[in-house]
C-alpha cells in the first residue's frame, strides 16, 4: 500500500472512532446530567468562607445549600454580620430587616479578687476537667478561669484579664457562639446587640451562701425587681435575678440600689478595663 493510502485509512478510522465516542459522550452528558443549583455557588461567594460553624452548619458551603433550598433565613451567618445578611437577602430577594447582631456576654464578675476560694486545684488546667471535680472557688456557678472560651474563639475576640476572667472585645466578636458552647458552666450567653442590661451572676445559691462565696454575687434581694418600671421586666427565679428582655426597659433605672453591683447597664460598651479598675477601687475602699 502506498504511503498516501496508509495515511488516509489511519485518518479515517481515527475520525470514525472519535466521532462515535463524541456521540456517546454527548449522549451521556445529556442523560446523566447533574442539575446543580447555580445559586449555591453564588451564595457561597457572598459568605465569608471561614467555616466557623456559628450558623449551626458544618461549613459555609452547607449553609449556602440550605439557603438555596430555603431552609435557612438570610441572617443565618453570624460571623458575616449585617453586611453579609443584606447581600444574601438581596440575592435571594427576601427581606433581612429582622437581622440583629449577636454578641457574647460573660455573666460572671467573680474573679480572683471578688470570689472566695476553698481549695487548690492541681489538675489539668482546662475548665471542663476542673468542673468535673469541683474546682477552686466556693461558688459552684462561677467562672473557672482556665480560659477554654478564649481557646474556642476563632476570631481573637476574647482574652483572660489579670483578674482571671475572660473579656470580650466587641469590635471583633462576630457572635458565632463558640465560647458559649465551650463553657462548661454556661456562664457565657449570646445576646442581641441592643441588650444592655445584664445580671452578671449565675449563682442559684441562697443569698447568704452566695454572699459568702463572692463579693459580686446576686443575693436575690429583689431591689432591682422593685426598681424596674415595667412589672415582670426583672424577676427573681431560683435565687437569681433574671432580666426578661421582651419587657425590661434597657436603661440603668433598676441598677442603682443593687448592693453587690451585679446588675449593670451598658458596661461592656465602655472599657472593660475601666470596670476592672472600679472593682479594684471598691475592694480597696
Amino acid at each position: 500500500m502506498s504511503m498516501g493510502g496508509l495515511i488516509l485509512i489511519s485518518a479515517l478510522s481515527m475520525g470514525i472512532i472519535g466521532a462515535v465516542l463524541a456521540i456517546f459522550l454527548a449522549f451521556a452528558d445529556s442523560k446523566f446530567k447533574v442539575v446543580d443549583d447555580p445559586r449555591i455557588e453564588a451564595l457561597a461567594g457572598i459568605l465569608p468562607n471561614t467555616n466557623c460553624g456559628g450558623c449551626g452548619y458544618p461549613g459555609c458551603r452547607m449553609l449556602a445549600e440550605a439557603l438555596a433550598k430555603g431552609d435557612a433565613p438570610p441572617n443565618s451567618c453570624v460571623a458575616g454580620g449585617s453586611a453579609v445578611a443584606k447581600g444574601l437577602a438581596a440575592y435571594l430577594g427576601v427581606d433581612a430587616s429582622g437581622h440583629k447582631r449577636k454578641l457574647a456576654v460573660v455573666l460572671c464578675r467573680g474573679g480572683n479578687i471578688e470570689a472566695r476560694r476553698q481549695a487548690r486545684y492541681t489538675g489539668d488546667l482546662s475548665c471542663t476537667a476542673a468542673n468535673l471535680t469541683g474546682a477552686e472557688k466556693v461558688c459552684s456557678y462561677s467562672c473557672l478561669g482556665y480560659g477554654e472560651c478564649v481557646e474556642a474563639c476563632k476570631f481573637g475576640a476574647m482574652a483572660m484579664n489579670g483578674n482571671g476572667l475572660p473579656v470580650v472585645f466587641y469590635d471583633k466578636c462576630v457572635g458565632c457562639g463558640a465560647c458559649a458552647r465551650a463553657c462548661p458552666r454556661n456562664i457565657i450567653e449570646m445576646h442581641d446587640e441592643d441588650h444592655k442590661l445584664f445580671v452578671y451572676c449565675r449563682s442559684k445559691d441562697k443569698g447568704a451562701v452566695a454572699k459568702k462565696a463572692c463579693d459580686v454575687s446576686c443575693i436575690a434581694c429583689g431591689l432591682c425587681v422593685k426598681d424596674c418600671s415595667v412589672s415582670g421586666g426583672i424577676v427573681v427565679k431560683d435565687n437569681l435575678a433574671t432580666v426578661n428582655y421582651d419587657l425590661a426597659p434597657q436603661n440603668a433605672e433598676s441598677t442603682g440600689r443593687c448592693p453587690t453591683k451585679c446588675i449593670l447597664f451598658d458596661v461592656e460598651s465602655g472599657s472593660t478595663k475601666q470596670n476592672f479598675t472600679a472593682t479594684l477601687a471598691r475592694r480597696a475602699g
Binding site: G123, D124, S126, T128, A129, L132, P184
Partner: peptide, 11 residues
C-alpha cells in the same frame, strides 16, 4: 494527666 483528658473527652 491522661485519665483527666479521657474523662473530659467522655463528658
Amino acid at each position: 494527666p491522661l485519665l483527666e483528658w479521657i474523662r473530659v473527652a467522655k463528658f
